[in-house]
C-alpha cells in the first residue's frame, strides 16, 4: 500500500512547472488507489435496479420464511401458508362475492376521507395562515386529537344508527384532527419572505392566501393527505367490527367466528394491497401536480 508517491511526481523545477499539464497528459493513465466502498454506507446512492432487486429480495425472504414456518411440521389450521391464503382469496372473490365487500369498504374510506379533507384542509390553511385562527381552534383540535376514535363507537351507534353513516363518521373522526394539525403545520412553513414579497407587490390578503400561501404549501399538504389516507385504512377494521354486514372488516370478523384463519389473512392482504395502490395513486398525483419538484 505504501507506494512511494514521489516516483509519480513531476520534478518541481520552474521550467517543468510551466509544462505540468502537457507532461501529465503525455504520461500513461494512472489507476486510482483501491478505495473500498462499504455495503452499509450513509446516504449512499442506490440505482433503480438495485432498489427493485433489494425490495423484491426482502419480500421473497418474508414469503419463503412464512411458507417454511407454515409447512414444516404438522399442518396447523391457525397458521396457513401463503399459498393457502392466496387460495382462500381466490375462493372469496370467485364464490363468495368478496368484491362487493371490498367495494363497500373502499366507498366508506373514500367518502370519509373526502369529507375529512374538505373540512380539515380549509381549516388547516386558515389556522396556518392566521395566528389568531390558530389560537382559537388549536386547543380544541389538540384536545380531540388525543381522544381515541373507537371510544366514540357507542355514541355514534346511538346517534347515527348502524348504517354506513356511522362507519363513515368513525373513519372521519380517526383522521380529521391529525389532518387539521398537519395541514396547519404545512402552511406555517410558508417562508415569510414569500408573503412579504407579495405584499410589496400590492397583493391583498385574499390574493396572497390564494397565490402564495396555498401554492407554497400544497405539495406538503398532498403528502400529508397521502399519509393520513394510510391511517384511514388502519381504522377500517375497527369501523367494520361493530354492527356491519358488509365490508372487508365484517368479512374478517365473520371468518374469526368460524376460525377461518386463511380468510382473515386474505382480508388483511387485500387491505394492504389497496393501501399500497392508494399510496401509488397519490405519488402519481404529486408527480403530475408539481412538475417543478420532479427529480430534485
Amino acid at each position: 500500500m505504501s507506494q512511494p508517491v514521489q516516483s509519480q511526481a513531476v520534478p518541481m523545477t520552474p521550467d517543468a512547472n510551466a509544462t505540468t499539464a502537457d507532461s501529465s497528459a503525455a504520461m500513461p493513465p494512472l489507476s486510482p488507489w483501491p478505495v473500498k466502498v462499504r455495503w452499509f454506507e450513509f446516504k449512499h446512492p442506490v440505482s433503480a435496479l438495485s432498489k427493485v432487486w433489494l425490495g423484491v429480495a426482502a419480500w421473497l425472504v418474508f414469503l419463503l420464511g412464512w411458507h417454511y414456518a407454515a409447512t414444516s411440521g404438522d399442518a396447523n389450521p391457525l397458521f396457513p401458508s401463503p399459498l393457502a391464503v392466496l387460495d382462500a382469496l381466490w375462493t372469496l372473490f370467485a364464490e363468495r362475492g368478496f368484491a362487493s365487500d371490498v367495494l363497500a369498504s373502499l366507498k366508506r374510506i373514500l367518502i370519509s376521507f373526502f369529507l375529512a379533507c374538505s373540512i380539515a384542509i380549509p381549516l388547516g390553511i386558515l389556522m396556518g395562515a392566521f395566528p389568531r385562527v390558530e389560537s382559537a381552534f388549536g386547543p380544541l383540535v389538540s384536545a380531540f386529537r388525543y381522544l381515541p376514535a373507537p371510544a366514540f363507537i357507542p355514541l355514534l351507534l346511538m346517534w347515527l344508527g348502524t348504517g354506513d353513516t356511522q362507519k363513515i363518521a368513525l373513519l372521519m373522526l380517526g383522521v380529521i384532527w391529525f389532518l387539521i394539525t398537519l395541514v396547519c403545520d404545512n402552511v406555517k412553513q410558508t417562508p415569510v419572505d414569500f408573503i412579504e414579497t407579495a405584499k410589496t407587490l400590492g397583493g391583498s390578503r385574499r390574493k396572497i392566501l390564494w397565490t402564495v400561501v396555498v401554492p407554497a404549501s400544497l405539495p406538503n399538504i398532498v403528502i400529508t393527505c397521502r399519509q393520513m389516507l394510510a391511517v384511514s385504512w388502519t381504522y377500517l377494521v375497527i369501523a367494520e367490527i361493530v354492527a356491519a354486514t358488509d365490508g372487508i372488516g365484517a368479512m374478517i370478523m365473520r371468518a374469526r367466528r368460524f376460525v377461518n384463519v386463511d380468510d382473515i389473512m386474505a382480508g388483511i392482504l387485500v387491505i394492504g394491497i389497496l393501501g399500497l395502490v392508494c399510496d401509488l395513486l397519490f405519488r402519481g398525483l404529486y408527480w403530475l401536480m408539481f412538475p417543478y419538484l420532479r427529480r430534485r
Binding site: P191, T200, V212, A216
Partner: peptide
C-alpha cells in the same frame, strides 16, 4: 417594491 436578501422567486 422590494427585493429581499434571501431567494424569493416562487418555485411553483
Amino acid at each position: 417594491g422590494m427585493v429581499f436578501q434571501g431567494y424569493t422567486s416562487f418555485p411553483w
